[in-house]
Amino acid sequence: MINVLIADDQPLIRSAVKALIDLEADMHVIAEAASGEEALALCQQHHPDLVLMDIRMPHGDGIWATREIVNDQTCAATKVLILTTFEEEEYIFEALRAGASGFLGKGTDGRQLTQSIRSVHTGDSLLSPLATRKIIERFMTAESFEKSTAEFSLRHPVLTDRETEILTLVGLGLNNHAIAERLFISPLTVKTHINRLMTKCEVHDRSQLVIEAYESGLVSPGQNPRA
């Protein structure tokens, strides 16, 4: 059973989402929060498997709450899935850096919502590679790119040649099978390398590895995956 916490300051949104989730046999809404502070407190109390998090909320927005939940040892097993609107796209990069495992638009249909919850719960990245690249390309300005590249080299240990190859291909949007074919190794070996990369880069999922690939300078906005 996937226990879900819904964090949204609009009661109607919470009720609609709860109704959709509770129709599924393998998931259940364990609690509801109307603010970032309440979401953090309820996570500490109930330890949900996943938080469906709005961004704009009073008393601690969704980005703040995501960062607090991800960094709280009592919530170590909890994943955060941002539920936002198209107009709030400018916050998505910051939310991913805060530790969110992905995002959905509030125009998402019920089937996609529940499938996305399952995907994030099993440890997969919700974001498609193309969507991730588009977001990063939009918000990584030349100035911030140069700054973050320098910061990356200071805060992370040196990667092996193979890890560098795989991080580059993850950043370009290739999935495990495509990376395995490109490097003539097994998908299981790719998965092992990716798990090690997550540990070295101190990130929680594949979406954040894509961002690390950009910040390291291994991938640049607009780069062709076939390059």
Rank of each mutant, 00 (worst) to 15 (best):
V190S: 01
M27N: 07
Q112W: 00
L183T: 05
A227K: 08
I135H: 01
E87F: 11
E151M: 10
A213W: 03
I211W: 03
V17M: 14
R14H: 10
L209N: 06
K200W: 03
A65P: 02
C201W: 01
G99E: 02
I69V: 12
H177W: 00
T84L: 05
P225D: 04
A150W: 00
D26K: 08
M140V: 14
T108R: 01
D109V: 07
G110Q: 07
M53E: 04
P11R: 07
R118D: 06
A31K: 03
R133G: 04
V210R: 02
L209T: 07
D49K: 07
I92K: 04
S153Q: 15
L174R: 05
S15C: 05
D109Y: 04
D124T: 10
A16W: 01
L154N: 10
L81G: 09
F93T: 13
E165W: 01
C43V: 05
V17I: 14
E146A: 15
T84N: 08
E87Y: 13
T189N: 10
D109P: 02
I136P: 00
K191F: 08
S116F: 08
R196I: 08
I92P: 02
G110E: 07
R138K: 15
L96K: 02
E137T: 07
G105R: 10
S207W: 01
T74W: 02
N195D: 14
I13L: 10
R118A: 08
R56Y: 09
I92W: 04
D72C: 14
T141W: 02
L197P: 04
F184L: 10
D49E: 10
S144P: 00
F86G: 00
P48E: 04
Q45C: 07
A34I: 07
H204T: 14
D205V: 05
T74M: 11
V203P: 03
A33S: 05
E24P: 02
D49P: 02
D61T: 02
L197F: 05
M57Y: 06
P48Q: 06
I63K: 01
A142D: 11
I136D: 01
D124S: 14
N71C: 09
Q45W: 00
R14L: 09
S119E: 13
I92V: 15
P58G: 08
S148M: 12
H177Y: 11
A25F: 08
H121Y: 15
L50A: 08
P225A: 08
R111Y: 12
G107R: 09
F152R: 02
F103Y: 15
E32D: 05
G105S: 14
I117N: 09
A25G: 09
I2D: 10
H193Q: 12
Q115R: 13
E90S: 14
N71Q: 15
A180P: 02
D26N: 13
D54R: 01
P187H: 05
A76E: 13
R56D: 11
D8I: 04
G123R: 09
P157Y: 11
Y91W: 10
R97V: 09
E146P: 00
V210F: 04
G62F: 04
A95W: 05
H156R: 14
E94T: 11
L188W: 00
V70E: 01
G107N: 13
T66M: 01
R182A: 09
Q112R: 14
A213L: 04
E89C: 00
A65L: 06
P58W: 08
A227L: 11
E143N: 11
M27E: 05
